[in-house]
Amino acid sequence: MSEYKTTAGTGDRIHPTTSTITFADHWGHFLARWGYRRGEHRVEPGLYGLGNPSPDSPVFVTANYTLSFDGLRSALAGFDGYILVLDTEGINVWCAAGKGTFGTDELVHRIELTGLKEIVSHRTLILPQLGAAGVSAHEVEKRSGFCIEYGPIRVADLPKYLETHEATPEMRRVTFTLRDRLVLIPVELTHVFPALVISGVGLFLLGGLLVSLAVVSAILAGVVLFPILLPWLPTPNFSTKGFILGGAVAIPFVLTAFLGHPQGAWWVKAGWVLMGILVLSSVTAFLALNFTGSTPFTSRSGVRREIFAYIPLMAVMFGTGLCMAVVFSLLRVWGGR
């Protein structure tokens, strides 16, 4: 990937850039969404000139993640300005702000390194609002002389914002739309891919097609259906939402198992149903709880409470289901049930 665009050797402090997103950029974004070479979707930190900026042109600050930088420059089509790219190690603005790399120190350092004071006549920087979790505006002003103006959360709102430099309340609220959730699914899939293949093939060999399909469905429910259905699943906690979704996904499989063996003893059939629900819903619930980090609204203290309350329950449910599976399989082999 040629994503680390370098203009070293040109002798310029200001790297020229445009608002055009090329096919290669789109392809890079696609790979980033699939988690391919996750940390390598970077642009070189430094100062970029968009269009034909003058000393009076505004300065926008962003992260050195291609999706962040490209989103900003494409939203500014038709504008002249400067883009100050901080070194966030290829991480987007909000996550980098959370870990402090999109932060006060790096911003002050980057202002000095690029000689921004000699390039622009004003002393204002426009930062994305979500960068505020890592940047202390009054601290930056004290240390660098630059005032921070927090722009809107979404780059799409920037042209409107620049008319008045006032953000509407909607521009200041983070959202998590269906589209926002859909773009996260590829990377969620890559996280569970090894588990998906191992359990799918392994369980097919051990327990047959129905068992394999059931577990694969429970995993896919956790990483595909869950992000899609998140706002519509009842209960506030992610774990309980996951139990409900996993239980619902289990129904067709346990019914097939129940109705498919009319000659079996009732307690054996009931046992398989219970086992299926225990295992499948705990698998989906665990994956659902893990989606908290991808959302823009779960607090750390809330997630911690969820972990303490539900991880033990998931473990007990999964363990009980697994033990039942072993016992019932042995009964089937020895007793012909």
Binding site: C95, K99, G293, T298, R304, I307
Partner: peptide, 11 residues
């Protein structure tokens, strides 16, 4: 007490 509400990272 700021932090990241991410179960994966905490686990």
């Amino acid at each position: 007490e700021s932090g990241v509400g991410c179960a994966t990272a905490m686990i």
